[in-house]
């Protein structure tokens, strides 16, 4: 079976709706099949990666730590749209760092998140074989 390029597009804030958590679970399940997986965060989806989430008082599961496991699942192409951050008064510093260990570079720890422009994001979408939207 040839490897297909999967892109998971995340456009919803966490907690208010189930989309963010559903997407994360589908990504983790899909990652078990060793496809070429990329994640896109745009519009309100960028809120999913906000650092410092603490859900104790709202009585929901805080799934933000699970994004940090994506590197273990070989999901290390995580694209965040600059324009979406700007519209929300956010910068890369407001997001939790996500890293992976590069097998081909003596397991050096590298950043998974790459901030891209809308035009670059469009190109990433264009080049994907399968796009799943959440």
């Amino acid at each position: 079976m040839s490897t297909k390029k999967f892109l998971y597009v995340n456009r919803k804030a966490p907690y208010g709706t189930i989309y963010a958590l559903e997407s994360l679970e589908v990504v983790l399940i899909g990652a078990a099949f060793e496809q070429d997986v990329s994640l896109a965060f745009l519009d309100d989806g960028v809120y999913q990666l906000a650092k410092g989430q603490s859900t104790e008082e709202v009585g929901m599961k805080n799934f933000s730590p699970t994004y940090r496991a994506l590197g273990d699942y070989d999901v290390n192409k995580i694209y965040v749209e600059q324009e979406s951050l700007d519209a929300r008064g956010l910068t890369l510093d407001d997001l939790q760092p996500l890293t992976y260990e590069d097998e081909d570079d003596d397991w050096a720890e590298k950043d998974s998140i790459k901030v891209v422009s809308t035009a670059e994001m469009a190109e990433i979408m264009e080049q994907s074989d399968v796009v799943m939207s959440f």
Binding site: A13, P14, Y15, Y47, A50, K51, G52, Q53, S54, T55, E56, E57, V58, M60, N62, S64, D94
Partner: peptide
């Protein structure tokens, strides 16, 4: 709502 701010990591 403070608890909703905290859940979303908004200072």
């Amino acid at each position: 709502m403070g608890p909703d701010l905290k859940a979303r990591g908004i200072d």
